[in-house]
């Protein structure tokens, strides 16, 4: 611990990631602004669903913008940046949603990036069974992370870990990414041990939650693909474009 401080210090990496993290109200304002522009939509699609798809697209754009500003990531050549994002885009979207619920959500409803609240009973009655089960599964993870007391420091570090979570053999710059993966893991371990000494193995439990984030993201991609096959997605949807790209 630093002298004259009120408690244990926060690893430098996490402090840097906190600086890069946009405020929720800034993200909300930008996305709400984008959604107010009329879309060249499909009149055959229900307006709320079309709006949700555009909202997800805009959230994706925010996430890429964040990644571009991240240390290490911004040093990589574009080919490596693309490989990393093609690997983790859906996990980052899922984790963004999850953390919003942990941080700002209320029991019995989900909070969208626009600030709108949707009652779970409405999801149950209006959404199809696939989306409903996805939302419920996500809510279980929200409860778990709530119980673990996931904080903003851990959130930004876990997001960074997700961004870099690819075997470096698929990249051109092995050493830069491997080094960053190790530093991020060490920072998270250090932080959880210092700040939650009573929690025992918070570090391990958080990493296990990332396994569930990955599983949820696979289920989310399957849902998107199902909607795409049923010709239910808006034209030029960015997530479908990401889904259809060849992955490593």
């Amino acid at each position: 611990p630093e002298p004259f401080s009120g408690g244990p210090s926060v690893p430098e990496l996490i402090l840097q990631l906190l600086q890069l993290e946009p405020e929720e109200d800034q993200v909300r304002a930008r996305i709400v602004g984008c959604l107010q522009e009329p879309a060249k939509g499909r009149p055959d699609q229900p307006a709320p669903f079309s709006l949700l798809c555009r909202m997800a697209d805009q959230t994706f754009i925010s996430i890429v913008d964040w990644a571009r500003r991240c240390m290490v990531f911004k040093e990589l050549e574009v080919a490596d940046q693309m490989t990393l994002l093609q690997n983790c885009w859906s996990e980052l979207l899922v984790f963004d949603h999850i953390y919003r619920q942990v941080q700002y959500g209320k029991e019995g409803s989900i909070l969208l990036v626009t600030g709108q609240e949707v009652e779970l009973s409405v999801v149950a009655s209006q959404a199809g069974s696939l989306l409903h089960s996805l939302v419920l599964r996500a809510q279980e993870l929200v409860l778990q992370l709530h119980a673990l007391q996931l904080d903003r420091q851990e959130f930004v570090c876990l997001k960074f870990l997700i961004l870099l979570s690819l075997d470096v053999k698929f990249l051109n710059n092995h050493s830069l990414v491997k080094d960053a993966q190790e530093k991020a893991n060490a920072a998270l371990l250090d932080y959880t041990l210092c700040h939650y000494p009573h929690c025992g193995d918070k570090f391990q439990q958080l990493l296990l939650c990332l396994v569930e984030v990955r599983a949820l993201s696979v289920q989310a991609k399957e849902y998107l693909y199902h909607k795409h096959l049923g010709n239910e997605m808006p034209r030029n949807n960015l997530l479908i474009e990401m889904l259809q790209a060849k992955q490593t």
Partner: peptide, 23 residues
């Protein structure tokens, strides 16, 4: 949906390229 070379999504190329504007 359009794709860049080698299965790269064009949107990702646009967002990551300093010289192109995102849609």
């Amino acid at each position: 949906p359009c794709q860049g070379p080698v299965g790269r999504p064009a949107i990702l190329q646009a967002l990551l390229s300093p010289s192109l504007r995102a849609r």
